[in-house]
C-alpha cells in the first residue's frame, strides 16, 4: 500500500524529462539571449516567417485577390497589371515595390517565395544533420576502417568545388526545389559536419557514464542512439543553422543563373531582371527595385540563420562565453 502511494505521489518519468528539458531550455535561452547577434537573427527569421506564412496568404485572399474585371492580377508567377503603361514600373501605391519586366508585382513574388526558401533551407539542413550526426558518431564509436573511410570522404567533400559541381549537374538533370534540398543535404552531410561531430563524439565516448552503461549491458547501437547522439545534439543543432544559410545561398546562386526548374524564387527574380537587360551598366541605379529587394531578402535571411548560429555557438562552446 505504502509503495503504491509513494509511486502515485511521484511524477512519471515523462514529466520529469519534460521538466528537465524545460529547465535546460530556460538556462540555455538565458545564455543565448545574452548574445545580441543571436537574438537579432532570431527576430529577422521570425519576421520573415510571419511575412511568408501569415501575411502573404492573408494579402493574397484579400487585397491581392484578382478582381472581376481582371485588369490587375497579383499572382507571383502569372500576374500582370493592365492599368500600368510601362513595365517595370517603379514603386507606387498599387505596387509597393514596383513591378518586374513582365508586369508582376515584386512584393507578391518576394512574399510568395519566402516559405519555399524556409522549406528548402530546413529540409537540406535536416538531411545534412541527420547524415552528419549518424556518420560522425558511428565513426567515432567504432573507429578503424569505418572511421578512416568516412574521414577521407569528408576531406574530399570539403575540397569539392560545390557550386561549380551543382552548375554542371543542373545541366544534366532537371533540378527542382526538393531535389536541390536532397542534393545539398546529401553532399554536405558527408563533409565538414561529420568531422566536427566525430571529434565531439570522441570526447563523449570516453566519459565514465558510457563505461557504466556498457557494464549494465547496453548494446552498441543503444549506446550510440541513447547516450552519444543526445550529447552531440547541441552541436548538430548549431551546424544546422549554418547549413540553412548554405542551402539558401546555393539555391539563390543557381536560380540567379537560371539553372533551376522552379517557378519563382528570390534568385530567379534577379535572373528575370538581369536577362531582360535591366541590371546592365548604368541601368543598375535606375531599376533598383528589381534587384535590391530580392538581394536584400537573401542576404538578410542567410545572415539571420548565421547570426542564430553564432548565438548558439556561445551556448554550445562555453569557452567563447564572456564569463
Amino acid at each position: 500500500m505504502a509503495t503504491k502511494e509513494i509511486e502515485g505521489a511521484l511524477e512519471s518519468p515523462l514529466t520529469i524529462k519534460m521538466k528537465l528539458a524545460w529547465r535546460s531550455f530556460k538556462e540555455n535561452w538565458k545564455i543565448f539571449s545574452e548574445s545580441k547577434i543571436g537574438v537579432l537573427g532570431l527576430w529577422i527569421v521570425i519576421i520573415f516567417a510571419i511575412a511568408g506564412f501569415i501575411v502573404y496568404p492573408i494579402l493574397a485572399a484579400t487585397v491581392w485577390k484578382p478582381t472581376l474585371s481582371g485588369m490587375v492580377s497579383y499572382d507571383p508567377v502569372t500576374g500582370y497589371d493592365f492599368t500600368q503603361m510601362l513595365n517595370p514600373a517603379p514603386p507606387s501605391l498599387h505596387h509597393l515595390l514596383g513591378t518586374d519586366p513582365l508586369g508582376r508585382d515584386v512584393l507578391a513574388q518576394l512574399l510568395y517565395s519566402t516559405p519555399r526558401e524556409f522549406a528548402l533551407g530546413i529540409l537540406a539542413a535536416l538531411i545534412t544533420v541527420f547524415i552528419g550526426t549518424i556518420i560522425g558518431t558511428v565513426s567515432a564509436y567504432y573507429g578503424g576502417a569505418v572511421d578512416t573511410f568516412f574521414m577521407r570522404l569528408a576531406d574530399l567533400v570539403l575540397l569539392f568545388p560545390f557550386i561549380p559541381f551543382l552548375i554542371v549537374l543542373s545541366g544534366m538533370i532537371q533540378i527542382d526545389l526538393f531535389r536541390l534540398a536532397l542534393i545539398i543535404g546529401l553532399i554536405s552531410g558527408f563533409g565538414g559536419i561529420t568531422i566536427v561531430l566525430r571529434s565531439q563524439a570522441m570526447i563523449v565516448k570516453v566519459k565514465p557514464f558510457i563505461e557504466s552503461a556498457k557494464v549494465s549491458g547496453a548494446s552498441n547501437p543503444y549506446l550510440i542512439v541513447n547516450h552519444i547522439i543526445p550529447n552531440v545534439m547541441p552541436l548538430s543543432f548549431l551546424y544546422m543553422m549554418f547549413n540553412v544559410t548554405g542551402a539558401i545561398f546555393s539555391e539563390a546562386v543557381l536560380s540567379f543563373f537560371g539553372l533551376l526548374n522552379i517557378k519563382m524564387s528570390w534568385g530567379l527574380m534577379i535572373y528575370t531582371a538581369d536577362t531582360a537587360g535591366y541590371i546592365v551598366g548604368s541601368n543598375i541605379g535606375h531599376y533598383w527595385w528589381l534587384w535590391l529587394p530580392p538581394g536584400a531578402a537573401i542576404t538578410l535571411l542567410c545572415g539571420a540563420f548565421y547570426f542564430i548560429g553564432r548565438g548558439l555557438d556561445e551556448v554550445v562552446n562555453p569557452r567563447l562565453r564572456r564569463r
Binding site: 547577434i37 534577379i270 538581394g295 536584400a296 542576404t299 548565421y306 547570426f307
Partner: peptide, 16 residues
C-alpha cells in the same frame, strides 16, 4: 556585425 554581414551577403547583390 559588419564582418558577418559581408560574409553572408548575396554575392551578386554586392557586385551590383
Amino acid at each position: 556585425v559588419i564582418g558577418v554581414i559581408t560574409y553572408t551577403v548575396f554575392t551578386p547583390l554586392l557586385i551590383f
